[in-house]
Design a protein around this nucleic acid. Structure first.
Lengths: 123, 123
DNA sequence: GCTCGATATGTTCATATAAACATGTCGGCA
DNA sequence: TGCCGACATGTTTATATGAACATATCGAGC
């Protein structure tokens, strides 16, 4: 089982600068952090190790001009992670682009699926 | 230097079924074959080894219901590769989706870039 | 028959990515 | 003080991917 093969549909990756990008994986992490308030919990929910989740967060915070995730150590109540305003905006922006893409290619998608499902292409 | 980091913009990957997908790399190969009439020439043009180019073609022909590329052995004139009608359609369809996506997310892209370029986000 | 250019495929090595495990740190709370 | 939960990192191992090299085959043309 490798990455990039999940459910049918369009997968969008936004490259802002040569090494600053966001795709489905990072967006899911951001969303998970926003909803759970924790990198570890977000990682568990997505079925990935804490290390991997943390590494993605670290990459985002290092590559973008401002951090997308703010963290604080310590047990519950004190410790955890949350999105910065920039993080919220990036996530929202990415989700909007996903929706716009899905809508824009919808017709072409069904046509393509039909073409591949039916060997009768004649012309 | 790794994959997926090239020029800024949107990168689109279409997943039709769990293991049937097409992205920028395969589309470029198809386009190169259409224009050069050869897997080897297409690979050279894209700066990849013949083996890698051939492997991508083999994957496409194996995964999709019908082959996208038809090949024939032998030297020039006899040997070479060309797109099947299905291959032509898949390529065209993918390019249309790319254009539709770029158009659909254009506004959001500039907004996102501005946000990341300028630390003054205030509200 | 020999060479050339192209498809087709195997093998080996290096690198990149992922997975698993281990440990350290920090802060609240019982 | 000792435990727990969460962030933060290191180390090791396995797997996947990519790069480089080596053939094999085939067909046309000289």
């Amino acid at each position: 089982m490798k990455a990039g093969n999940r459910t049918p549909g369009a997968r969008l990756r936004i490259v802002l600068e040569p090494d600053i990008a966001i795709g489905p994986g990072k967006a899911d992490i951001l969303e998970g952090i926003r909803e759970t308030g924790s990198i570890a919990a977000a990682g568990r929910r997505l079925g990935m190790s804490y290390k991997r989740a943390w590494l993605l967060v670290e990459t985002m915070n290092r590559c973008f001009r401002e951090p997308l995730v703010a963290t604080s150590r310590g047990g519950r109540a004190r410790g955890g992670a949350r999105l910065t305003p920039t993080g919220e905006r990036v996530l929202e922006s990415y989700r909007r682009m996903e929706r716009a893409t899905a809508k824009a290619i919808d017709g072409e998608m069904t046509e393509l699926r039909r073409l591949l499902a039916d060997p009768e292409i004649s012309d």
